[in-house]
Amino acid sequence: MKFRLYRFQPESNQPPCMQDVELDIDPAGKMLLDALLELKAKDDTLAFRRSCREGVCGSDAVNVNGRNVLACITPLADLKQPVEIRPLPGLPVIRDFVVDMEPFFRQYKSIKPWLINDDPEPERERLQSPEERAEIEGAYECILCGCCTTACPSFWWHPDRFVGPAGLLQAWRFIADSRDQATEERLDYLEDTYRLYRCRGIMNCVEACPKGLNPTESIGRIKTLLVRRKV
């Protein structure tokens, strides 16, 4: 198979370039990560992140033929050749496919991604009906891979000010949790022209999410709450 790889090694003092390589691999039943591992076995200077290799840890997000995907769950056979692999867009590149995720995580942390409940803890669990629990379905499953946020032009323009789809999805995860008591604070934080309202609903995030989640819908629900609070 033919691959076109984005290569960048800061110590080499060379600008980034695209490298054409060919790999003798039978794509049947294999994932893109398998190909990357074989490429690395041949040339150990190729750098990328990986961990669980089954799509639950979120390490190996890359941009393949223009789409953000997790390499470990992208079937090799489905890819058009030459397979062009680049780092996620919109984040500083450290080396090859390794990007600096710091702006992404800073936005994630900005929304206070933890349950806030100041009531004294009961002896046993806090009760939550299956219906209440269902409210956070589609939000708590996020693996923080960054595919959605780095597919969002608003995040490209405002990485320091726009929370981005992943962060907003997590904000919704806590707003929607019947046990969380900080809805008002969370809405106060998001009531901002930049943090939330840079989202124009173009749904790039939905298309990019490898877990099939829908950040745009959650952002819409946050907006609904903000409007309801206002009027």
């Binding site: 669990e125 806090r126 939550q128 299956p130 209440e132 629990r133 046990r179 969380d180």
Partner: peptide, 20 residues
């Protein structure tokens, strides 16, 4: 420990009566 995790916010699945 399981109760503590629940209090921390772990989104356990629930039974009809609201328990874990």
């Amino acid at each position: 420990l399981v109760y503590e995790l629940e209090h921390m916010g772990l989104p356990f699945s629930r039974l009809e009566n609201g328990k874990i």
